[in-house]
Amino acid sequence: MRSLMVADLRARWRSLAGLGLGCLVVLLLITGTYSGLGGRAGVTRSFGSGTPAKMMSAISGSPSADIAVPANYIGFSFSHPLFLLLSITVAVSSGVGAIAADVESGRAEMLYTAPVSRTAVLGARLVGWLIAQTSVLACAVAGALIGSRLSSDLSEASAWVPLQLAVQFGALSFFFAAASFAASARAQTRGAALGAATAIAAGSYVANLVALLWHPLHVLRRLNPFGYYNATAAADHIQWLDALALITSGTLLLIVSRIWLENRDLT
């Protein structure tokens, strides 16, 4: 299955390079401007207190975190909507392209008539996603590290913080990749799979944000994957239980994907 993985990565390297570069630039800009904003005091001043600050904290995945604190600020950068958009695109595009796009384009007839099991093809695509996602996250970590060095006020945060955040985010991206694989295994067209995967990601994000900002709907937090990704908490230390919850539910989705793929007609 190595040949399939290599071919997929070769075919996608330009888009992956673009997403990686995008993540590097976004993280570099956010972290690199911390000192420019005036460090901790300056960030607090810039975003004020009350609702705007609460909004910014909510975006960082926590209702109460002070994002002006250096480590939390790096955490905020790893939950910035632009970063999320770029990095979750890797998961969604990998999943959607895995099955539904092959069926729609007719490429499935070239691939699945080979003496390889459908599960093996799914596995190869999963490993391909892992390589792609790791590469893009490595770019994000590099951006955050360079930005932190450019902003001297961020230096009181440990150099391990971006790596912790990447690991924590890895679990979230695994969930979205698995959801996209499931949508792809079920859908007849790439558009249908993309629509379902995007709806899951965007719907979850909005539900989480609303739950963080409006207490009566707080219960929604633990019912959606973003509720298990608290970037400011992960900046302190990796939230292993949250990661485990995402990996477990992602694994269940992959099992469902496998069952759907094994039992469907590939036309």
Partner: peptide, 8 residues
Amino acid sequence: DPTFVLNL
């Protein structure tokens, strides 16, 4: 209707 990876 054979389909290939176009940019390979």
